[in-house]
């Protein structure tokens, strides 16, 4: 499998480590009055789509960047690769 890194171009999947669903970017606010339930969902509740899935990959043997990879779980086709930093900034995070 080849991941087309936004900065570095196509790189072998062996250089990367998989973390999990990209929803991990949206960590709940510990100060929220529903924090216990939100963190329960954040930790344990996942969609399991047959089709496009957004997931976090770490380029460990590379530039050490976190990526959001959109992969089709039926075909393994990778349709989009973004820097997780850019995704987080676009969602209003400060870094």
């Amino acid at each position: 499998m080849i991941i087309d890194h936004p900065l570095l171009g196509p790189r072998d999947a062996a250089e990367f480590v998989y973390l999990g669903d990209a929803c991990l970017i949206d960590r709940p606010d510990p100060g929220d009055e529903n924090a216990a339930r939100l963190f329960h969902d954040y930790l344990h509740i996942r969609d399991n789509p047959a089709g496009e899935h957004r997931e976090l990959w770490f380029h460990e043997h590379g530039d050490r960047s976190w990526l959001v990879v959109t992969r089709n779980t039926l075909t393994h086709e990778i349709v989009r690769v973004e820097l997780a930093r850019d995704v987080a900034l676009a969602r209003g995070r400060d870094r």
Partner: peptide, 18 residues
Amino acid sequence: PLDLDDRVFPLHRVARTA
């Protein structure tokens, strides 16, 4: 695992890999 072809990995190019 890197493509070291001149067109992809020219002079001064650098990359970490395994």
